[in-house]
Design a protein around this nucleic acid. Structure first.
Lengths: 203, 203
DNA sequence: TGTACATCAGTGAACGCGCGTTCACTGATGTAC
DNA sequence: TGTACATCAGTGAACGCGCGTTCACTGATGTAC
């Protein structure tokens, strides 16, 4: 019953759906189990139920496939953050909900989250860096922080710099928590997010 | 001239030196170039100038070799931090010098630094987690912060929690800087460290 | 309406590669008698 | 002092594996005439 079935081809001129299926399969691979290195072209093809060479119908090579997955992960995270903020009552609540959501995303999807930062960008051309999806996330933080900060006077840091502190702090917290000895209890991470916001919004 | 020379064996009963040589070779592999995944047993053996099976004379398997390298990297970082602090005039200067040194270590040895957090610890037994070298680093931060903070009153965070914020913030900063679009200019990272200390030591 | 052909989605088999690990070995140095 | 043997450091060849990629193919669906 496990006889390798030939996939029913998409309708003529409708090859696109498979591309999405491949990305979804790759994403599933990251959530279910297995290490990030396990995101091999062949493993993805297996997960998608297609032959390995079929991947080349939609992606130039493995690195392009991985890049597509990374973009999808970023987009999903950004959407989560926007949604979390929209369910808040006031700006500070919005910032806190965003921060919690960020932590939860990372904690619940450790492999997906890791992948976002695993691809070395150092060799990427400048133009590609400019449109990196990280910039969208960066802007989300700055917006949310600006909404909380009234006029704080010249001795206070700008919202942009506070946003950098916030994102760095959250990333550091979840990265340490994910990569190092940790318990399934995610309260420490939320506590740290609280501390961080407390410090950044302090008068 | 490239004829594969047989290594001159260590003196009888003195097999230990090779173990250190292997770890050094692995560390060299991480600094020179290549990705972290490139830390394969065979690559390390090549770098050390020995045959692949010789590694098994000193390590049970590949994972034990990698663990040894990780420990060495942690020890090196901790030593750097202690040295940096010892060259300072006053506590706050010491904290700042430590923070800078931390950033510089990560920025100058991105692959070494990554390796520290790359090994998934989730399956590690509790006892092994307790002696994880990260704890030494954690204590270094708490000490340095305690020395800077006088009595801050009950509304202020404890040194331990501020240490968590500091480390998370620094790790987040260098991790984002290392993994994402970045310029060779490391000033942004130092600036963020300054901002972070500014916030944490604010009265 | 029929038929030859182009186009498209997807595949099976094969390639060369580096990997971790095992095995039986080599050759030098020590020890027992 | 000589010699047989044990011990140790280190090796070459081989294994089976999963990988990324290439190639010539299959078979269904569309188009031209």
């Amino acid at each position: 019953m496990d006889k390798p079935k030939r996939r029913v081809p998409n309708r003529w001129g409708e090859g696109k759906p498979l591309r999405a299926e491949i990305v979804v399969a790759a994403s599933r691979l990251l959530s279910d189990s297995g290490r990030v290195e396990g995101l091999s072209l062949r493993a993805v093809a297996r997960e998608a139920g297609i032959a390995a060479p079929s991947v080349y119908l939609h992606f130039k090579d493995r690195s392009e496939l991985v890049a597509a997955v990374v973009r999808e992960v970023y987009a999903g995270l950004a959407a989560d953050l926007v949604r979390a903020r929209s369910q808040a009552q006031d700006p500070e609540d919005g910032l806190r909900k965003m921060a919690y959501q960020y932590c939860d995303f990372a904690v619940e999807n450790p492999r997906r989250y890791r992948l976002m930062f695993e691809v070395e960008q150092s060799e990427a051309p400048a133009e590609e860096r400019a449109i990196h999806p990280m910039n969208e996330v960066r802007n989300l933080w700055t917006d949310a922080l600006s909404a909380c900060l009234g006029d704080r006077g010249p001795k206070s840091l700008s919202p942009g710099r506070k946003a950098a502190l916030l994102w760095s702090g959250l990333h550091g917290a979840v990265a340490l928590w994910t990569a190092l000895p940790y318990s399934p209890d995610r309260r420490p991470v939320h506590d740290l997010a609280d501390d961080l916001i407390f410090e950044l919004l302090a008068k």
